[in-house]
Design a protein around this nucleic acid. Structure first.
Lengths: 228, 228
DNA sequence: TCTCTTGTTGTACGACTGTATAGCAGTGCA
DNA sequence: TGCACTGCTATACAGTCGTACAACAAGAGA
């Protein structure tokens, strides 16, 4: 009888394997939370020996940082996709952004636990901090872009984009967190309504500190900051 | 020579010791984050053997739950104290609440890391979940109380307290988190200004879904809920 | 078909974890 | 002063963890 030699493992090019390890790490964090942060568990999830992680990444932390960046960017792209639909007004686009932010997939408790692991590593690890700064900036930029479109709308006063995006992202984050911790506090639709209200208030000029004070036309010099 | 026998340990009544263990646990979480969640480390912080924790608490988790409740209530009381000052208008009281929420003591990164540990335990431990639900309800109740005072103010439209408090707590939480993770994103004063803006918009009736639709006077029966 | 590269495994290491348990010792009461 | 209660310590246990390293073997190129 011919001996069918089933290979004990399959080789993969580094790029592919690294991607697979990222996916396994995310699955582990989603399923087990902080307990999922383990070379052995991630290796088992990927169907691979624990030592392989240190072969492709300098440390477990580096793998988690890569997973953080991957997940954050992927989620942002996914949410943005819903808002990019053509033929929508700026306010409708924002509305779609809110709806996508509170879709069932985003309210998975496992996702929240994953995020908690990321956050808790930021203060100890420089790589995680870098990823946070980069992804948060990207998130804020996406919001600034959507909010910036409002400036073309009739009747909307000029407002400062950056603090507006900071406030909106805080509101979104805060609602997302409580909805993730305790889904019974309010419905996803309530969260969307509260965000819509925020948009309405912004367009009504009801946020005084965000309004741009019109500068006199005779002094075109740049004087954005009062201190030298 | 008289042998001065220095005692190897000091006895304490259970109540006192439990309180001391809670303080030690909080100090550990503040200093070491998730790594501080260790019987040996907490014991060392309290100047006590690790086994003593299991003598006074059924498990480490129970101690952490007690510490969670203690810290949450203590912080809430501390913030409320600033808002309770007599002779202030409802809006000024809210303003004080905001200022206290972004005071240096509240923006300590160690405090944020402590909170992350609490949050990450909620989904696995029933005791932690109970404490979260109770403390979050207390926090929301405090906000509802402050917001409720606005109803007596001239020119302020009636609004629904509960969703208003949910939105405000989300905004506060979101701003607190980003300020804790990266203090360079914005100044504490900016956060206070963004919250004040929110108050202004609320008082201006700029949050449509929060406004109470006036019911007809001829039907005074209680019909708060549409379902039996 | 053989060889070589290198992706991968398995194990070993030291350090850490929570908790159970046996016995020591501080301290109030008689 | 001495006893008794019990708060407390110290140790042991069976796990966990990340990483290093030597040896193995898959699979492509010759």
């Amino acid at each position: 009888m011919a001996r069918e030699h089933t290979p004990r493992f399959r080789r993969a090019p580094p790029t592919v394997r690294r991607e697979a390890l990222i996916e396994a790490a995310l699955a582990c964090l989603r399923k087990h939370g902080p307990e999922g942060l383990s070379a052995r568990r991630i290796g088992a999830e990927a169907g691979v020996s624990p030592g392989l992680i240190n072969h492709h990444y300098p440390s477990i932390t580096a793998l988690i940082a890569a997973a953080y960046e991957s997940l954050a960017m992927s989620l942002l792209r996914s949410i943005q996709q819903h808002a990019r639909e053509p033929g929508l007004s700026p306010r409708e686009r924002l509305q779609r952004f809110y709806q996508a932010s509170f879709a069932p997939a985003l309210l998975d408790p496992g996702l929240f636990n994953t995020w908690l692991v990321f956050w808790s590593m930021i203060s100890h690890d420089a790589g995680m901090r870098t990823v946070h700064d980069r992804t948060y900036a990207a998130y804020r930029a996406a919001l600034e872009s959507l909010l910036g479109e409002l400036h073309g709308t009739e009747g909307v006063p000029r407002f400062r984009l950056r603090p507006a995006a900071i406030a909106l992202s805080a509101l979104l984050d805060g609602l997302w967190i409580e909805a993730s911790i305790n889904p019974r506090t309010f419905e996803p639709a309530d969260a969307v309504a509260l965000c819509s209200d925020w948009t309405h208030a912004l367009c009504s000029g009801a946020f005084p500190s965000l309004l741009v004070t019109r500068r006199p036309r005779r002094r075109p010099g740049r004087r954005r900051r009062s201190h030298p």
